[in-house]
Design a protein around this nucleic acid. Structure first.
Lengths: 143, 143
DNA sequence: ATTATTAATGCAATTTACTTTCAATAAAAA
DNA sequence: TTTTTATTGAAAGTAAATTGCATTAATAAT
């Protein structure tokens, strides 16, 4: 699904242009890489996949930029380590994460409506919710 | 509710004894402190509240022990920093957390059943779920 | 009770994940 | 084409958590 991921990259670049943010080679490459990823990636993994084309700090900084623009979403592992995946409009989901191998499955359940309604009734604004299920995947629980 | 927190401490000490774990002064003190806390605490905060009675590494190590014994539960802030709170049987809940001041409210909603059923149908075992709502509390959104 | 065993502690050093600083470079605006 | 300003890379710095190791204390054995 090449065209699909190209579209995601293009849309993200448009988002950048709409702010005062610049379209650079690292950003193009990072977006392409994220668009083609089969699972959420850490900054280290992203850098590894780019074969050292640019510095790790460039990955960190751009993930932060992308997050601010809602181009990527973050997932927190139990260790507190962050993973990143492209935001796809109309494809809100969460994850089931294997504690051992970090295999990640989409969790096609979400209670965002209820959760945010509850929080806003308590005076909270600018809400975001996180739902994560941690466990051992089939392979990792075989021992 | 002094008696209540005493009971929690006693129950936790029993859990320790049931393994080969020892009942030490730091552990008593840490459990008491957690039982009396009005909100989830970080290791640094726990140490601060104990007025330097013992080393920070002792706090970290014991929180890990307590977590393994399900004596405490952890909460992950967006930064990846960990907070700890005593597990109270029959009082499963999640949190709404202010991004700015870290004020924490109990979130009296949980979809653990659905979430874990979904994950176990995908072959995952030893499940745990996390639900967190982040936002700005009334005070912090006033500017 | 006393001694032996083994777990827990404190301190220092280390690691991991991430952030900041700053000079050099490149993108976009003039 | 020049100027402006955002972005980058390299190195140093930071915060949270972890590890190694000698000392101390809790429990088990005698």
């Amino acid at each position: 699904m090449k065209a699909q991921s190209d579209n995601l990259v293009e849309a993200a670049l448009e988002t950048l242009k709409a702010s005062t943010l610049r379209v650079t080679e690292p950003r193009r490459a990072l977006l392409r890489l994220l668009a083609e990823a089969e699972k959420p990636l850490s900054c280290e993994e992203i850098r590894a996949r780019s074969e050292g084309e640019f510095d790790l700090v460039t990955v960190y900084r751009n993930m932060e930029v992308f997050r601010e623009q809602n181009i990527v979403q973050t997932i927190l592992l139990e260790s507190g380590k962050q993973l990143f995946e492209l935001t796809v409009e109309g494809d809100h989901h969460h994850h089931i994460i294997c504690r051992s191998c970090h295999r990640t499955l989409r969790l096609e359940l979400c209670f965002g409506g209820e959760l945010e309604r509850y929080a806003s009734s308590r005076g909270f604004k600018q809400l975001e919710h996180k739902i994560e299920v941690f466990g051992l995947c089939e392979t990792c629980s075989e021992d």
